[in-house]
Design a protein around this nucleic acid. Sequence first.
DNA 1: TCCCCTGAAAGATATAGACATAAGGTGGAA
DNA 2: TTCCACCTTATGTCTATATCTTTCAGGGGA
Lengths: 229, 229
Amino acid sequence: MSITYREVKADILRQITQGELAPGSAMPNEVDLAASYGCARATVNRAMRELADDGIIERRRKAGTRVRQNPIRQVRLNIPIVGQEIAELGASYRYTLVHSQAEPAPDWLRARMALDRDDRVMHLICMHYADGAPYQHEDRWINLGALPEAEDHDFTDTGPNEWLVSTVPFTDAQISFHAVAADTSLAGYLGCAEGDPLFQTERTTWLEGRTITFVQLTYRRGHRVTMQY
Amino acid sequence: MSITYREVKADILRQITQGELAPGSAMPNEVDLAASYGCARATVNRAMRELADDGIIERRRKAGTRVRQNPIRQVRLNIPIVGQEIAELGASYRYTLVHSQAEPAPDWLRARMALDRDDRVMHLICMHYADGAPYQHEDRWINLGALPEAEDHDFTDTGPNEWLVSTVPFTDAQISFHAVAADTSLAGYLGCAEGDPLFQTERTTWLEGRTITFVQLTYRRGHRVTMQY
DNA sequence: TCCCCTGAAAGATATAGACATAAGGTGGAA
DNA sequence: TTCCACCTTATGTCTATATCTTTCAGGGGA
């Protein structure tokens, strides 16, 4: 076959990284590039589209394509399910349900989850262990108005995350990362000292505009989230 | 024009989220889908390719396409330059160079950056302020073997990050997020108490296999990194 | 001078057809 | 029975061409 879009992409990327195409400079248009590579315009288009998607170049109709002044640096971050995360570490996974109760939503949670005054929630506290050692503390609230089945479901054996992803896959979510100090309770569960700095993830999940669940995931001391780009 | 790949994608996604196509189930092949949508195979292909890229479906030659059992949850995370990050908050940005010295690489850093025994590094400590308040503490090491210009460059007015992205754009990097306790020095710089939990980012950057720089970015107390998907 | 309309440029996308590649499945040989 | 060669099939990609959409730039009118 003739030249592939991967080769075109690689060649353009090479020209950019080796300085033949300076940041900020304009590139030839698709028609000319196709002619110079001796391929169809669609091939060049796909190469350029992917480069634009990667944040390397910037494309605008009529204005043409140029090398970005400062390439956008972005990474893709996988949001794992804790059981899988631990399995990928090569460790054995154990789950425990610590607390499980349906109750009216406290005020702070009503604000976070955009709930009404009389909405009830399922409050679950769970622990996830890797090779027997505490790995993650899960403090989860499920909106019983949106998911009444949660009240009767038995979370003794499998975590709410597993149940949720199989019951309501394809949700929208907002995630945030931050650091917290271990309070007495977290220190007890995670086997660290009170006041220790812990990495915490918060996640709110929606389905078609309705809040499904809010969860705080607190990791054992020293946990890192790592990415490449 | 006839049906677009976006419409095809949206329709397939709708079928999946509304349960018409169950997780794990096989989908019709591209030729059949194209016929049923009354469009070209390339149109269906693009829709399916993007869905696969989004982690919704799984495609294998010959085996066909099926809806993923558990959709891959992933987010794109932009790695901002601190000045831009602060500007986007609508705050004023101020930068200070605290410390700047060329020195032999300490042992722990040689391991991290894969340096030789006699490699020298540029050690920079900087502070970034938002509306006058401490925002981020930057502790950076630049490999002078790979970037000798760094020794003579003046970092008084602009941060090393800005200089690096304009000098060596298009690098590879590994990033990690974690929580640390503020030591005396960090507490002083960031205006928090010793022992406070702080969100920290570590980043190692390479260019063609050579380590360029290693940096620890520690944020003010309460900082969050937020993402949507 | 300012504003709106129009033409043209360049990317975005659709189409039909062809060939490439990977991999599941099957039948025959060992 | 086991295993390998081969056939088939679904996705992957390229070509050539056409149309659509966005947007810049220039001209004309108020």
